[in-house]
Amino acid sequence: MRPRLVGLLALAATLIADQANKLWLIFVFGIEARQPVRLAPFFDVIYAKNPGISYSLFPAQNGVQRLLLLVVTLAATAFLGFWLWRAATKIAGLGLGLIVGGALGNAYDRLTYGFVADFYHFHVGSFSWYVFNLADVAIVSGVALLIYDSWRPAKKPQGQATGQ
């Protein structure tokens, strides 16, 4: 299977899983009325509306700011999509597909709702880690795969001499 196809499959699976999870939690389970749902002493499911990007940085409070965040997200996604199209390894294709799928899932939220829906909250005592969603997990996993792929030694093409 070509790296490009691996990436496109990862992109589609990520986008579908992220949006299905968000739609189910919001409209079927009704997380807003039931929160917090404690799954472990350190892990809850809640409903957070993130108007910005990671860690609620650069919150977009009005339509122009939301549009600007959306344009920046789509430009970065287009660049990553071009990189995916030219990916040389399956690991890079998978990583880029996860990143693009996650970015598109969050961009869809921002376009549709005006914010990104986040649900998963790790905490220990008074220390609270940020709230995230499946798209964020895919993005972080994709970045980790790209880092791993960049550290792997390059394979030499078959038939190439290893001389002087």
Rank of each mutant, 00 (worst) to 15 (best):
I53P: 02
V45R: 02
L69H: 11
Y47I: 00
L70V: 12
V64K: 10
P51A: 09
Y47H: 11
G52N: 05
Q65F: 04
L69T: 09
V72L: 15
Q65P: 01
F58Y: 13
A75L: 14
V71P: 02
D44L: 01
I46A: 01
S54Y: 00
A75V: 14
N62W: 02
A60H: 02
S54G: 12
A75Q: 01
V71A: 15
G52I: 07
Q65L: 10
F43L: 15
V71T: 12
Y55N: 07
N50G: 07
V45E: 02
A76Y: 06
R66I: 09
L57P: 03
I46V: 15
Q61K: 14
L67D: 04
Q61N: 15
R66T: 13
L69R: 11
L69E: 07
G52Y: 08
T73A: 14
A78G: 15
R66N: 07
L67S: 13
L74P: 10
S56L: 03
N50S: 09
L68F: 14
V45A: 04
L74V: 12
A60T: 06
S54Q: 00
P51Y: 08
Y47C: 03
V64E: 10
G52F: 05
L70N: 09
P51I: 04
N50C: 08
D44Q: 10
G52W: 03
T73D: 13
F43Y: 12
K49Q: 11
I53V: 15
N62P: 06
L68D: 03
V45D: 01
T73K: 10
A76P: 03
R66K: 15
N50W: 08
N62K: 05
L70R: 02
L69Q: 10
V72P: 04
R66M: 09
G52T: 02
Y47E: 02
L57E: 04
V45P: 01
G63C: 02
L70E: 09
D44K: 07
V71N: 10
I46K: 08
L74M: 14
V72R: 06
Y55Q: 07
P51V: 04
L57A: 12
T73F: 07
I46H: 03
I46Q: 09
L68Y: 07
P59W: 08
V72S: 05
D44I: 03
A76W: 08
G52R: 03
A60S: 04
F43G: 06
L69V: 09
L70D: 10
N50E: 10
T73S: 15
S56R: 06
T73C: 08
V71D: 06
L67A: 15
L69C: 11
K49G: 00
L57R: 08
T77K: 05
A78T: 13
